[in-house]
Structures are given as C-alpha cells and as structure tokens.
Design a protein around this nucleic acid. Structure first.
Length: 648
RNA sequence: GCUGCUGUAGCUCAGCUGGUAGAGCGCGUCCUUGGUAAGGACGAGGUCACGGGUUCAAUUCCCGUCAGCAGCUCCA
C-alpha cells in the first residue's frame, strides 16, 4: 500500500503496516522520537490520530507526531497517556478509587475519580513518585478492541457505573487500553485512545491541583474529585510553562490593583470594590471614553432608581427566575428589590408620553449601578462582583431596524476594543435556552437577525446552543485574562418579550399601536470587569492616555526642589495627571519607586535643567530618553494621548 | 452554592511534637542634598480572621462562622 508523507513523497509499505513501521522506514532517529501518527484518508479533509502500533488504512496520508513538533495533537496524546498513568498511580495508592473520565485539556489533563478519601496537595508527591515508577517501567500502551456487546458485558462486571455510562454513550465498538504485559503487572481502562507507545515516553509531568467537579456537570449528581496535571515532551518545556504561570501571576489584577493603589476589597463587603483615587481615575477615563462614543452615536444618557418595587420585577419575569440572586429590602407596605439590571427602568422612561415610529430607534444609555447576589464561590476579584456598573443601553426599535442597529453596535465594540488595545476578542452567539419566555417563531426571528448581522460583517464567531438569555438570543464579546480565562465584556441581546410584558408601545405609520423590539447592549459590560481586564492586559503599565498618573517630577536635591515645583505646576496646568517627588531620597530610589508605580514618564530635574528650563525624561522601563525643553515634552505628550499611543 | 486548601505587622512570608511572636521590604524620626535600578542610624507597628471547645496553658489541637484561593455549577 501507498502512504503519502507531508512533503508529498509516497512511501510503498506492506499492507497492514503501522505508523511505527513507516517511521522506522524513514529513519531510526525518527522512530525514536515519534509518538503517534496523524492519518487522513480523505485527502486531508479530516485527520485521525492513530496509535503507532495500529495498522494504517490503505493509501492514506500520514503525518508523524514527534516530541519536537508543535501540533496540538502531539501534546493531547502525550497528556492523555499521562492521565492514564496518573489514574493507575492513584488506583494503586487508593484501591477503592472508581475512575470516571480523564481527558487532555488546554494546559494539561485531568482525571475525575470517585473516591471518598479527599486527595490533598500533600498527597501529590506520593502520586508523582508512583507515576515516575510506572514511567520508568516503560510499559507499552496496548489497544484491545472488542465488539460493543462484548465490551459492554465486560465493563458491567466491574461495578463502576461511570464506566458503564461512558461505554453506553460511546458509539460503535469499544476499545480498552492495557498498560503493560498481557499477564502480570498491568493497568486497564476503557478508552478511545490514542496513546503514546509506552509510559517511558512521558518525559515531564506535574500534578497541579485537585478540586471538586460534578459528574457530567450536573449539580444534583455526585461530586467527584478532579485531579489536574500537565505533561510535556521535555522537562525544559514544563519548566517554561511553570515559569509562564509565575509570570502570569504578576499580572493578576488582584495583586496589581492593591499594589498600584487602584482599589482594594475587604471582608465586610464581599464582591464589592473600594476604588482608590488612582483606580477611580482609570475607571473615569473608561466612562468618559464611552460617554463620548455614545454621544456621537445617537444615544441619550439617563439615570434610574436603585430600589424598585418587587411588582416591576414580577412583571418583567426576573422575580420568577432570579429571585434567589436579588437583594431585597422593605419598608412599611412594599417589598423592594435593589435593581439587578436597568432594562425595566428604561422601559418606564420609554412609556412616558406617546411614542411614534418616528422616534425610533430610541437609544437610552445608563452607567447603571446594579447589584446581584452572586453565589459566594463565583466571586473573583473585580471581574465577578456583586456590586457593579454597566455601560448599559437599551435600543427601542422596529423589527426592520434590528440588523442596522446590531451592525452599528458591533462597530462600536470593535472601535472601543481597538482603542483599549484588545486585539483578540472571541465572539459568541448564544441561542434559545430551555427555560425561556416568548414564542418559538419570535425566537426564530431574533436568532436570525443576530446571526445575519454577524455574517454581513464577516465576523468569526462560535455558536453556543441553549446559552441565550431567558428573553432572547445574544452575541457576547469575550476577552481573556492573564491566566487564559475568558470573560464576557460586551454583549448585545435581542428582546421581543420584555417590552410587551411591561406594556411599551409606539404608534406606527399605520396609526395603530405596536410593541417595539428592545436591544440590550453593553460595550464594556461591567466597568469593574473591564478595568480588571485592562490591568491584566497591560500588567499595570497603562498607555499614557489612560494612566492614572502620567508623570512624576523628581528633584535631584533641595537646590532643584523649587524648579521641580514649578515643572509640576506647569504640567498640571497643561492637564497632565502629575505627581511630585521632592523627598530627601537620592534620584535612584525615586526613580525606582516611580517605576514600581508604573508611571509612564519620570521627569528628573536638577540644577542643570533648572538653568536651561528643560526636563530630563525617563520611561518606566528604566530608559533615559533625553533632556527636552518643557514645551517639546508637552507637545509630545499631547500627540501621544490624542493618538492613544498607537503611532509612537 | 458544592469539593479541597488557606487566613500571623501595610506587603511578602518564617514560626518543629501546645509554654501569649520574628525577618525583609514599607512606614516614622534624625543624619546625609546626593545626577539616574534602593545611602546610613534609630524607632513605631500584631486580640496570630472571628466565635466556641479541649488543656494548668492554644497562633499551634478540635468544632463552627466569615472571607480569600483553585476548580465545578451558575452568570438576567
């Protein structure tokens, strides 16, 4: 049979040859480092990863995965095998363990186990030692295939409901992997594969953490222990990965926020933010940016009450679905809810007076302060909080106007994210959830409108079936943080239901009343989260235009302190956010302190500068940029701020 | 909310098998007025998260509460 290699050369091998045979034929060096084979039988439309010992299909295209290449499947195979080794080690140490499921994931792998004894980080070294032993034995991974019936019969004897479940849900015939000899020391697991040839090929691994995970993600089902690990083809790569994690920690907004004196959080108000002057300056820069953008794009800013009678939330449908997550308060006759969102209030504004179709689209924006009683375990720094402010707006429009409004909004999102420096956002389109309000035809229409707009803009997006809001489908704009977690920032949601439920009407061209469509939308989403993402994105080193403090003036000695005061005053007059350091420290420590605060420009002034009317400019990376006349420096700053630093 | 871990000075952390606490940085005062990645001396700072229990004695052991961390679930 013929096997085509990546360089399009064709190798003639006996029928039934394996990936290992092909590798050996090419060269013994390759045979030593190859881990698995990637095989395509449909001219590279789809690929399947094969064990090296598995016979190849006739006339296929093959790509050999080695320890050195960067194909993500290489790591997946390696990590999947590492998961098996870890499972074996755990079963050896805890014989009552029931294995559940152990896949590779983005940064490593995990194995879910059902075991009543909690595994703690203190146990990791023992498990790792056992894994090292298994790896040293260099036992082969052997694939054993069985007919479905045979396999099911076998697995049912094992008293493990999870594996029976897995087997029942798998399609077609079943395969098991035996690690080791057919008799004697070996470990077996129901598994689709593929695996590396033998345990010895796992060169670098580490158990990372353990946590709870519900079986099949169901909160009502048993909570299992999920043990996370990672594996690489070399120790060097593992070390690099661990170092990268350390570096990422330094960008964490929960560390940088207090360190840069931006905000703090404390026990007495979990899920809320105490903004310090510098953090609030940053926050207000975001607000000003959005306020200007909305003003230029046909929005009217409004403001609505914090505390609203429960009856409004009953009408809107929130009480039914989110009562558990709403903060309430009461007076003599009323039970109130602290608003968890702004839309019902915006509808109240819409309802004042008689609206005409000529008023549409009508766009109400609010920096709306909301409170949601999020479950304690979901809080995360300022990214997920209970008290937050959205750059919220609701667009009241006709069905015909939806497309155009979505397009305009997506353009605003793109412009904003570009200006703030987020270049890789992920777009997600979420469709109708099981629990929802509104007729199916209406959902069809709303989903179509959103998708159509995305397509017309040639946006790349992922579809999330069933993840829409209860009143309508949505498009989310997500950005990742320093440790790769994705957070929803912007969103636009089509709502055919709530205006009707709350009695919003306009008079159409036909002189009869109609219910408007409402679009819920936010560019930043929660401003708290947006600022959190900004902190991590820039690791605290904000571009000049958004830096809370833009310059610090440092005097060389007492002799130059008066001039430093003068320079400081000039900068303030020119609108620069500036502080003065005329302390008795030497210039070294002053600069160090300024760098620690990530202040973009450190302006050193001594007797020389005082005599010349100049300033010596240094950046926060320790680079001395030169001595400039004051005017020249200011002009440079003004340009840098105006262009948001993109051309400099 | 669930599982596991954690909570000691403003920050980062020591503190073994119970005998009421320590370092570095920071902070304050003084000396030094020094030209670009931390000058020197002295000093102040802690109800060891909170509430119970065991004990002659608890920061240390046990239970509970609160908060944080990791993941799961959730996210209008």
């Amino acid at each position: 049979m013929k096997v085509t290699l990546p360089d399009n050369s064709v190798l003639e091998v006996p029928d039934g040859s394996t990936g290992y045979d092909v590798a050996s034929k090419i060269g013994p060096g390759l045979a030593r480092v190859v881990l698995a084979a990637k095989v395509s039988t449909d001219d590279q439309k789809t690929w399947q990863v094969y064990d090296l010992s598995r016979p190849l299909p006739a006339d296929c295209r093959i790509k050999l995965l080695t320890e050195k290449d960067d194909d993500p499947d290489t790591l997946n195979v390696l990590r999947h095998s590492a998961a098996h080794v870890m499972a074996e080690a755990i079963c050896k140490l805890y014989p009552q363990t029931k294995l559940v499921y152990g896949p590779p994931v983005e940064d490593g792998f995990y194995y879910d186990i059902d075991l009543d004894t909690p595994i703690t980080p203190e146990d990791f070294p023992r498990i790792e030692a056992e894994m090292t032993r298994i790896i040293k034995e260099d036992r082969p991974f052997r694939r054993v295939e069985m007919s479905r019936d045979q396999g099911l019969a076998k697995i049912r004897t094992e008293n493990n409901r999870y594996k029976v479940d897995n087997a029942e849900r798998a399609e077609g015939d079943l395969s098991f992997y035996v690690t080791g000899a057919e008799t004697g020391s070996s470990f077996e697991d129901l598994c689709r594969g593929p695996h590396v040839p033998s345990t010895g090929r796992i060169k670098a691994f580490k158990i990372m953490q353990v946590s709870g995970a519900y079986y099949r993600g169901d909160q009502k089902d048993k909570q299992l222990q999920r043990i996370y690990g990672t594996a690489f083809a070399s120790k060097k790569q593992l070390d690099e990965y661990l170092k990268m994690l350390e570096e990422a920690k330094k960008r964490d907004h929960r560390r940088l926020g207090p360190q840069l004196d931006l905000f703090h959080q404390q026990e007495e108000s979990p899920g809320a933010v105490f903004w310090h002057p510098r953090g609030w300056a940053l926050y207000q820069i975001v607000v000003s940016y959005i306020r200007e953008l909305l003003g230029n794009n046909g929005y009217y800013e409004v403001n609505t009450p914090q505390i609203v009678d429960k009856s409004l939330w009953e009408k809107s449908g929130h009480w039914d679905k989110f009562r558990q997550n709403m903060f309430t308060t009461e007076t003599e006759a009323h039970e109130f809810a602290i608003k968890p969102m702004n839309c019902p209030c915006h509808i109240q504004i819409f309802k004042q007076g008689l609206r005409s179709h000529k008023d549409l689209p009508l766009r109400f924006a609010e920096f709306g302060s909301c409170h949601r009683n999020e479950p304690s375990g979901t809080l995360h720094g300022i990214m997920r909080v209970r008290a937050f402010t959205q750059d919220d707006a609701h667009i009241f429009c006709t069905e015909d106007q939806i497309g155009e409004e979505v397009v305009q909004f997506v353009n605003l999102v793109k412009q904003t994210y570009r200006d703030f420096g987020f270049d890789d956002m992920a777009v997600k389109f979420s469709t109708r959830p099981p629990q929802r309000v509104g007729a199916d035809e209406v959902w069809d229409q709303a989903e179509f409108a959103l998708q159509d707009a995305l397509k017309s803009m040639h946006m790349d997006y992922a579809t999330a079936p069933g993840e829409g809001a209860f009143y309508g489908p949505k498009v989310d704009f997500n950005v990742h943080d320093c440790i790769g977690r994705y957070w929803q920032l912007g969103t636009i949601q089509v709502d055919f239901s709530m205006p009707g439920r709350l009695g919003a009407k306009y008079i159409g061209a036909d002189n009869s009343p109609h219910t408007p469509v409402m679009l819920h939308r936010a560019i930043c989403g929660s401003l708290e989260r947006f600022v959190g993402i900004l902190i991590e994105h820039y690791a605290g080193a904000f571009p000049l235009w958004m830096a809370p403090i833009q310059c610090v003036v440092c005097s060389i000695s007492e002799k130059s302190a008066p001039y430093a005061h003068e320079v400081h005053a000039w900068l303030i007059e020119h609108g620069m956010r500036t502080i003065l350091d005329d302390s008795s420290d030497r210039i070294g420590p002053k600069k160090q302190r300024a760098r620690d605060q990530m202040i973009p420009y450190i302006l050193v002034v001594g007797e020389q500068e005082a005599a010349d009317g100049t300033i010596n400019v240094n950046d926060r990376n320790g680079i001395t940029m030169g001595t400039y006349p004051f005017e020249q420096f200011i002009q440079g700053c003004i340009i840098e701020i105006h262009t948001k630093g993109r051309n400099l």
